[in-house]
Design a protein around this nucleic acid. Structure first.
Lengths: 130, 130
DNA sequence: TTGCATTTACGAAAAGTTTCGTATATCATT
DNA sequence: AATGATATACGAAACTTTTCGTAAATGCAA
């Protein structure tokens, strides 16, 4: 019996915020906003980030600690689960459900190091062994 | 000197239309609309599909033959190129640019047949050799 | 030819997402 | 206590995407 999280899928902007929280752990709006503005060329206003994080908290993608004046936000959406769900949707829409087509396309742009190829080969072997 | 197509990326709904045209070849709005409604549960109105295809024609994602009253639409966006561009955007947003992470996730989660695994292995070998 | 069904054209509503202005509260410094 | 900097709350504007209503044109069949 696995527990489904059943969270809504994040939008593009929301995913950007999740990436930061997944990487950095619990953070303030100020920090997340700064990270976003480092990653991107386009400047994003502080209240924009705040609003998004408030919406995400409502959707349960995040939770927050409001003990101090400066709230600290935590990602509730699990990275792996979120990626998995987004991947499924993407494979369905773009590759008509064929994960293999996607893998071929992804590897086809041969910018994959030998070490990464080895990892993939190892995984394939593991799958083949059952 | 390769010629870049430089087409805008399709939206979700537009991609659904492209999939049908890629598979079926040149088609009428009526046909595309029927296909969409077979694939999905949600009923899409005829003029909705028409409007989308008109917009896509403006964007050069499609072209059309207007010789007869019932126009026949053709996909101008190339399937492989479109998939590649969408994949890059998706990998960047969801896997922080790591195609390997995506491949691992895709192989890990989806059911992959032995034949498909063989194809992937063959591709990996090809990459390693060349 | 007249009327009905089907098509295209067009605009705009509806829905979803992102952005920010402004008000208000809180904290630190003077 | 007053001032200034920074935080949250909230609503609504601005954009993007999707959907459809309605009008006008075209072809078909009685």
């Amino acid at each position: 019996m696995s527990k489904k999280s059943n969270l809504p899928q994040p939008t593009d902007a929301e995913l950007g915020i999740l990436q930061i929280l997944w990487k950095a752990g619990p953070s303030t709006v100020r920090f997340v906003n700064e990270q976003l503005n480092e990653q991107q060329e386009k400047e994003i206003g502080y209240t924009t980030t705040l609003k998004l994080m408030q919406i995400m908290t409502e959707k349960k993608l995040l939770s927050r600690n409001t003990d101090t004046r400066t709230h600290v936000y935590l990602a509730e959406a699990v990275q792996g689960d979120t990626q998995k769900a987004l991947l499924k949707k993407f494979v369905d829409a773009t590759f008509q459900g064929s994960a293999t087509s996607l893998v071929m396309q992804a590897l086809g742009n041969h910018e994959t190091s030998q070490q990464e190829l080895d990892e993939i080969k190892a995984l394939i072997e593991k799958i083949e062994k059952g």
